[in-house]
Amino acid sequence: MFKKILLAVATLIATMGFAFAQVDVNKADAAALDSVKGIGPVKSKAIMEERKKGDFKDWADLEKRVKGIGEKSAVKLSQAGLVVNGKPLDGAPAATAPVAKADKATDKAAAKADKAAAKAAKADKAATPAAPAK
């Protein structure tokens, strides 16, 4: 029983590293915007300042109002998970999950949990008496 629970926890931790959340330019705070590859503190501040004037209607509106965001950077930002009103840039390749520091920590935790599960399974097997031979 313990072995099954430990295995389930290890699996859950391992899959968490692959979760990918999109960041909506109209809803995200500065920290969430900074988490998108290609957006740093300067660009997130510019986005937040422009957003005070009103939400971005679409990608064209974002490109027009925020200095430093043009066609090429919009494609890259969309690939990195940025969306406008829940929509990625039309024609941009599908978003890919970035490998963040948190993902690396999660991978280490998953590896540690896997080792613990293997050790528990080995101990469980050793504790189980062998069936008599016929």
Rank of each mutant, 00 (worst) to 15 (best):
A123W: 01
K122V: 11
K37W: 02
E63P: 00
I47N: 04
K52E: 09
L7V: 15
M16A: 11
P93Y: 04
A30K: 13
G40E: 05
A133G: 02
S35E: 04
K104L: 15
G68D: 10
A19D: 02
V36F: 04
G17T: 04
S73H: 12
G68E: 10
T11Y: 14
I69C: 09
T15H: 05
L7P: 00
D34G: 10
T128L: 15
K45G: 06
K53D: 06
G91P: 00
K43T: 10
A97Y: 01
D124V: 09
L12Q: 07
K37F: 05
G91L: 14
K52A: 01
R65Q: 06
V42A: 12
A105H: 03
G54W: 05
A121N: 06
T96K: 12
A28R: 03
G54T: 07
V9G: 10
E71H: 12
T11V: 15
A105V: 12
K108G: 02
D124Q: 14
A95F: 03
A120Q: 10
I69E: 03
L89Y: 04
A121V: 07
S73G: 04
F18K: 10
Q22S: 06
K72A: 14
D55I: 15
S78G: 13
I47A: 02
D107T: 04
R65N: 07
A74R: 11
A110E: 05
V25K: 09
L89C: 07
A110C: 11
V25T: 08
L89N: 02
L7F: 12
K104M: 13
K37G: 13
P41L: 00
P129A: 15
A127W: 04
D34C: 11
A127C: 11
I13Q: 01
P88H: 09
M48P: 03
A32F: 00
F20A: 14
G70T: 11
L7K: 10
S78M: 13
G81S: 08
A110N: 04
A118Q: 11
G54A: 10
N26E: 13
A109G: 01
D34W: 01
P88S: 11
K101F: 07
A31G: 00
K104P: 02
A116L: 15
M16I: 12
A97F: 00
N85E: 13
V83R: 06
K101A: 04
L33N: 08
S73C: 05
K27W: 03
K87G: 01
K67S: 14
A121H: 05
A14N: 06
D103F: 01
N26L: 09
M48F: 01
E49R: 11
R65M: 12
V75H: 02
T106H: 04
K108T: 08
K72S: 12
K52I: 00
A28Q: 00
A113Y: 08
A127S: 12
V9Q: 04
W59I: 01
A94Y: 01
P129R: 13
G40T: 14
M16W: 07
